[in-house]
């Protein structure tokens, strides 16, 4: 399970995500759609902390990836000096919490008790981000194959470097994956000699060499020539059928409808509507979604 709780992301003064909460269960294929600039990529990148949220928490399998967000923990807020001051000045405890949350009143230093409480949560649930990322594969719009490595080295680098597999095991897995996508003959070439579709399919199987539990896709077909979109979607479909948990940002509505188990519609940095593909595409509720669909379909 990947859970994001009350996620906020600010770039300078620009609030790109506000109060986004959602949860991706094992086996789900969640498709994120929405207009350009609505924060889809940012949300996805927060899930493996390529982007660090401003507030809020990201959880993967009951492990906390982000710093502890005090605003999500009533008991921690109530240990803060600000809270104590408010209560001492006659504000009711509930009202104090609300005021603190709404006004973003917590300061950097809120006393020893508060700091200790935060440290405790972190210690009990926190995890090294590099360990968490091994479980979460990511596929980028621009492939991001390592330019200075051959295809096979691209695929074996991480598992060997991180001592998860011996070189032989890693190569065996890599070759079997290449075979599955029909590109064994490309093992020894550099990425610059490949077509976009080939690059993206290799990027997908490169992520699979880490045997991840989750896969994140950020517009995996948007940078491809039209005739190559099909081969990549086909591979993703296979992956979906094999039971992989997937979160996919895409403009391919046909794919979303066919493969998605849940569709999340984002607008202005918020989740504006979510539901099954039938519901989202067949019976949209919010005006924003209706407008978006009318433009795109």
């Amino acid at each position: 399970m990947i859970a994001v709780k009350n996620l906020y992301k600010k770039f300078d003064k620009n609030m790109v995500l506000s109060a986004v909460s959602t949860q991706v269960e094992k086996g789900e294929k969640v498709v994120i759609i929405g207009p350009s600039g609505s924060g889809k990529s940012t949300l996805l990148r927060c899930m493996n902390l390529l982007e660090e949220p401003t507030y809020g928490e990201v959880w993967v399998d009951d492990q906390l990836l982000t710093p502890v967000d005090p605003y999500l923990h009533f008991d921690i807020i109530s240990l803060s000096n600000t809270y104590k001051k408010l209560v001492a000045s006659g504000v009711s405890p509930d009202e104090a919490i609300v005021q603190i949350k709404q006004g973003d009143l917590l300061k950097r230093f809120e006393g020893f008790e508060y700091a200790a409480a935060i440290k405790k949560v972190r210690k009990e649930n926190g995890i090294d981000i590099n360990l968490a990322r091994r479980k979460i594969g990511m596929v980028f719009q621009h492939f991001n194959l390592f330019n200075n490595k051959t295809v096979i080295d691209n695929m074996t680098l991480a598992p060997v470097l991180l001592k998860l597999k011996s070189k032989e095991e890693a190569e065996e897995l890599a070759y079997s994956l290449l075979k599955r996508i029909g590109l064994e003959d490309k093992a020894k070439v550099y990425p610059s000699t490949l077509s976009g579709g080939q690059k993206q399919r290799i990027a997908i199987v490169r992520a699979l060499t880490m045997t991840p539990d989750y896969m994140l896709f950020d517009e995996p077909t948007s940078a491809l020539d039209p005739e190559m979109v099909g081969e990549v979607l086909e591979l993703m479909k296979e992956l979906a059928e094999s039971g992989m948990t997937m979160v996919i940002v895409t403009h391919e509505m046909g794919f979303a409808r066919e493969v998605g188990t849940r569709v999340v519609f984002m607008a202005d940095g918020k989740i504006a509507e979510e539901g099954t593909p039938e519901k989202i595409f067949g019976d949209p509720q919010s005006p924003r979604l209706k407008e978006f669909l009318s433009k795109i379909l």
Partner: peptide, 27 residues
């Protein structure tokens, strides 16, 4: 060097330093 190279390395769980040494510096 395209910042996607670092992101790809990090997304595979390779730490910053190692990504620098193996991927970024050579390029």
């Amino acid at each position: 060097v395209d910042k996607g190279q670092m992101e790809a390395g990090r997304s595979l769980g390779i730490p910053w330093t190692q990504t620098m040494v193996r991927i970024i510096f050579p390029q």
